[in-house]
């Protein structure tokens, strides 16, 4: 199993396309950081326009923590495509190249083989997120410094103290990893049925786009199905950045307003991952290799 995993990782990181994702992410993040470095004040004024009618807000609004939040908000919607690029190729790519039949004539168990493949895709996904964390969080912290986070939400604004933020990012990135693993698992599952990677990539993105639209449209008809769409749960990382208040409306350090939402969404995502991977194993074990 470990050898299989090693080989899969070796294959992933020997391919140029693997690095496209890392390059794309680097470019996106640097562009956002550059924009906020140059015009951060304008951006803050725009976001806080409504607040500033009533309040004078002093301090470094555009700090590393805030920048990271902006980046995640903008970027995480697009990361699934980059994950699909690799995950969709895991099985269909081998079928397309013709290497699948060679691999499966080797003395290996198909279950172990497919699990190793999924683990490799998962490791790739997690490395991508670590890279995002390094650039979006740590580099932003270096470039923009740190301060309290002042976030504007739909119904209210939240101010979180500087010392109370870092663990929230740790949590948010772990949750994001879970969300992205769900995408990888879906893509991986679809990869079973194709003999080139384009099909599963397009199928995964279609599923994500359609369900995201359903998730974001506030139409009563769609609201009833929202809880059943995994994309609805993929954005729950934001819940880490909402804080409980006491009766005097003071924030309580170290708390999360809707911890229940995070837990529920995590469970939904884990169930999805297990189902997709489990289905992949079942399908793959029965698969006749005709490519």
């Amino acid at each position: 199993m470990f050898t299989l995993l090693q080989i899969e990782l070796y294959k992933i990181f020997k391919r140029p396309r693997t690095y496209i994702a890392f390059a794309a992410i680097t470019a996106l993040i640097v562009i956002i950081q550059l924009g906020l470095k140059v015009d951060g004040k304008e951006y803050a004024d725009f976001v806080l326009a409504d607040m500033k009618n009533m309040l004078e807000i002093n301090g470094k609004i555009i700090n590393g923590y805030f920048v990271c939040y902006v980046i995640l908000q903008l970027l995480l919607i697009h990361v699934p495509l980059l994950i699909a690029l690799i995950a969709a190729d895991m099985i269909s790519g081998e079928a397309n190249m013709g290497t699948l039949r060679l691999l499966l004539t080797k003395p290996i168990s198909r279950t172990e083989f497919i699990m190793a493949k999924f683990l490799a895709a998962a490791i790739y996904t997690i490395l991508l997120l670590i890279w995002i964390a390094v650039l979006a969080l740590f580099v932003s912290m270096l470039v923009f410094g740190t301060d309290d986070m002042f976030l504007v939400k739909n119904a209210y604004a939240v101010q979180i103290e500087r010392a109370d933020i870092f663990w929230r990012y740790a949590g948010a990135f772990c949750f994001a990893a879970l969300a992205m693993l769900t995408v990888a698992a879906l893509c991986f599952f679809l990869s079973n049925f194709a003999e080139n990677s384009i099909g599963p990539i397009v199928a995964t993105m279609s599923v994500i786009i359609v369900t995201t639209i359903l998730s974001t449209m506030s139409i009563p008809l769609f609201n009833t199905i929202k809880p059943f769409l995994f994309t609805t749960h993929m954005v729950a990382w934001k819940e880490f950045f909402d804080i409980k208040v006491n009766d005097a409306n003071e924030t309580i350090k170290g708390t999360v307003e809707h911890a229940d939402k995070i837990i529920r969404s995590s469970i939904v995502l884990v169930v999805h991952i297990v189902l997709f991977v489990g289905a992949s194993v079942v399908v793959f074990k029965k698969k006749d290799v005709l490519s």
């Binding site: 050898t3 294959k11 190249m97 290996i108």
Partner: peptide, 23 residues
């Protein structure tokens, strides 16, 4: 089996090494 498809983005040496491990 049919066409001898191996990993085109790897060298001959790397291909042999990889499949040796798998075997």
């Amino acid at each position: 089996i049919e066409k001898p498809d191996v990993y085109k983005y790897l060298s001959a040496y790397e291909n042999v090494q990889l499949f040796a491990k798998l075997s």
